[in-house]
Design a protein around this nucleic acid. Structure first.
Lengths: 162, 162
DNA sequence: GTACCCCTACTCGGATAGCGAGTGTCCGAGTCGGAATGG
DNA sequence: CCATTCCGACTCGGACACTCGCTATCCGAGTAGGGGTAC
């Protein structure tokens, strides 16, 4: 089982967008450059975030991306769902109904216990992600920001932001 | 994100093996037949379960698979780990160290907050699976077994088990 | 009749192809700002 | 000097190749039991 790396990118992007001045935007190319990843591929993930309503996109020379709502209202689950989709990782094939001793439909009124357990585990995972917002992450990360890094960041932002 | 279907197969196999008479075994071919899945592919997953010490394998005409320890001591996490491996689904690429404003090693003493949150979610998922044993699942499933199904199963087992 | 040996049939185990989702890329659609132009 | 128009550059959005891991398969290694043979 493997989570798409785009989820990590999306989370970092939301963190970066959350510290922008009000009304400012960043283009996909700049977001990719900032994180050192391929611009075209980053664009694909930004598109997914835009479709999901996590970020809002503007076109034209002054266009770019910004958060669609306050960072305190965007959870890591929102980002994950936007990029990975909402299909569960465990997809029950109901193999208990197959084979020579397969259960008949009447014997399958309740959900398979195995599927139930795996879906419960997935719910726990989701709940854990829903409990963390982009604002939480950035607040935590801010503790590690050195003065030098903040200065570097401000300089970069000067050139990049609209 | 998608969980390998082999995990479901492995869980069902462990459930089936857990109701075998003491000392009896089932061959990979019979386990595949029972679940209506390709024998060769089932064999691959059984091999993984065997390597992980979840089931023990015997060779030769009287050989086959049996549980390596009581069903109450085998969790769904054990099965998952055996087949999927123990690598985390979220693999931090430390993209905060990349790009023009990349953090220096000194600024990365603590783990990235995003990675921390995702790994915490994964821990919740794992804990949920570790709380459910094969015995739990079978005890729950037994409630749905009709007399007809039990009879069919006994007949099948007569031919299959060693 | 009995003990030994070989052989067969059955088992698991690792090495080998095929396919689909994720990865990576490109070009077209849309939009805003600014420069050029005419009044 | 000002309003209008046109152009260009920059943006996002969807459609197109490529790669790696899961899916699926086959053949070889190993073992237990049974039949045959020699004593």
């Amino acid at each position: 089982m493997r989570l798409s790396e785009g989820v990590e990118w999306g989370a970092h992007v939301c963190g970066l967008l959350s510290v922008l001045p009000d009304g400012a935007t960043l283009s996909g190319a700049h977001l990719a450059d900032y994180h050192g990843v391929p611009p075209a591929y980053m664009a694909k993930h930004l598109q997914a975030l835009s479709r999901a309503g996590v970020v809002s996109a503007g076109r034209g020379p002054t266009g770019g991306y910004r958060l669609a709502r306050p960072a305190s209202e965007i959870t890591l689950w929102d980002v994950t769902q936007a990029i990975e989709g909402s299909a569960p990782a465990f997809r029950c094939q109901d193999i208990r109904t197959r084979g020579p001793v397969g259960a008949t439909p009447k014997e399958c009124k309740r959900m398979c216990g195995i599927a139930k357990a795996f879906l419960a585990a997935e719910n726990a995972w989701r709940a854990s992600l829903q409990a963390v917002t982009v604002a939480d992450v950035m607040g935590d990360a801010a503790k590690d920001f050195s003065a030098a890094k903040i200065k570097r960041f401000a300089t970069w932002l000067e050139d990049a932001a609209h």
